[in-house]
């Protein structure tokens, strides 16, 4: 046997493939000289010190499962292969009328209680920090990894106290994220959408039944939390949005500075419905504003305001839509202009 043969034995030894006969051969060879032993230990060291880097991003396995399940039509198959809920059937035949109703109500109450308990445990006290901004209020959060979250008014941010597989943030409202690159993916979850990044700057706005993402730097993955599968990837200065549980809209170019106006206390509206404009003003100025004539609320506004009083803002809006406002008892009322 020559050197190459012994190297082969060493590598087999390291991968745990050595037969007892080969093991004996290797032992004999090792005892022959210190050089042989040195060679063995050197190769063993390389073997042990070889490592694989962590992937920068690992998709959420449950989300991926729902995609493949939809593609293969497994839901359908599942319901076919299953028998009708026989336990429920038996239960029904045992109980009748009012009794059944009482049992149903009781079990509903139980489910409700359990749901509350689960929810509390998930988000309430143990695993997540919770930050809230009221109307007219802003907050900045710096996370353990150095990433920053700037919260707009009327928003709630919850973030995990410790990270294992991902940096997880739950958002209701609006916030701007400056994410420091790291091994763990940074995930922003809203009512209906999931936004995943590695290290970028982006804005997420979850108001009503809509989540909208605008990317300032880097790349962002954006997907629905509903059944609809499909994910879009957004590059810098792109935006996409998800309504309800639909699919994300195809990303398109957008005016990033307009979206981020709120960071500089600037209000920017681009063909925004008046009711959304008013909702934004209420949060921004922490004041009560009501639209008295419903048909006004569907009009759209394109405007930019910075460092103006609420009166001045309302004045220019009213001018644009041919309306007027009345200030009475801490509340502004927007009404049609009297002829």
């Amino acid at each position: 046997m020559d050197q190459a043969d012994y190297q082969m034995l060493i590598s087999k030894k390291l991968s745990g493939e050595l037969s007892s006969k080969e093991s004996k051969q290797l032992q004999d060879w090792l005892t022959q000289s210190p050089e042989n032993q040195a060679l063995y230990h050197e190769m063993k060291r390389y073997w042990e010190q070889s490592r694989q880097p962590e992937p920068p991003f690992i998709p959420d396995v449950h989300q991926e499962w729902s995609k493949i399940k939809n593609r293969l039509g497994l839901d359908h198959l599942h319901s076919q292969s299953r028998r009708p809920e026989s336990a429920v059937e038996t239960f029904r035949s045992l109980l009748s009328g009012r009794k059944r109703l009482a049992v149903a109500a009781l079990s509903l109450a139980c489910i409700f209680m359990i749901a509350i308990l689960l929810w509390k445990n998930e988000i309430g006290f143990s695993r997540y920090h919770r930050m809230v901004t009221g109307n007219g209020e802003r907050k900045e959060i710096t996370l353990d990894d150095g990433s920053q979250i700037r919260m707009n008014s009327g928003s709630v941010v919850q973030y995990a106290k410790s990270w294992k597989k991902k940096r997880h943030v739950i958002l209701a409202g609006e916030a701007f994220f400056s994410v420091v690159p790291g091994e763990l993916p940074f995930i922003v979850q809203t009512e209906n959408a999931v936004t995943g990044v590695l290290g970028t700057k982006f804005n997420v706005r979850a108001r009503g039944r809509q989540t909208r993402v605008v990317v300032k730097e880097g790349r962002v993955r954006f997907a629905s939390r509903g059944k609809a599968s499909g994910e879009v990837v957004l590059a810098a200065s792109m935006m996409s949005q998800i309504e309800d549980h639909g699919l994300p809209r195809i990303p398109q170019e957008t005016d990033v500075e307009a979206t981020l106006g709120w960071l500089e206390k600037r209000l920017v509206f681009n063909e925004t419905l008046l009711r959304e404009v008013i909702a934004e003003l209420i949060r921004f100025y922490d004041t009560d504003i009501r639209i008295e004539d419903p048909e006004l609320s569907e009009l759209t506004i394109t405007a930019s305001f910075s460092e103006m009083t609420v009166d001045a803002v309302l004045e220019s809006i009213c001018l644009a839509i041919n309306a007027e406002y009345i200030h009475k008892k801490d509340c502004y009322y927007i009404v049609h202009r009297c002829q």
Binding site: Q52, P55, I58, P59, V61, E64, W65, I68, K69, L74, L77, H78, S81
Partner: peptide, 24 residues
């Protein structure tokens, strides 16, 4: 036997190792 629940468990078991292998 076309049991989709078994397939689900199987998927959860091997998703990450396969993903890592492919990423590497």
């Amino acid at each position: 036997a076309s049991d989709s629940e078994a397939f689900h468990v199987f998927y959860l078991r091997y998703y990450e190792p396969i993903y890592r292998f492919l990423w590497y």
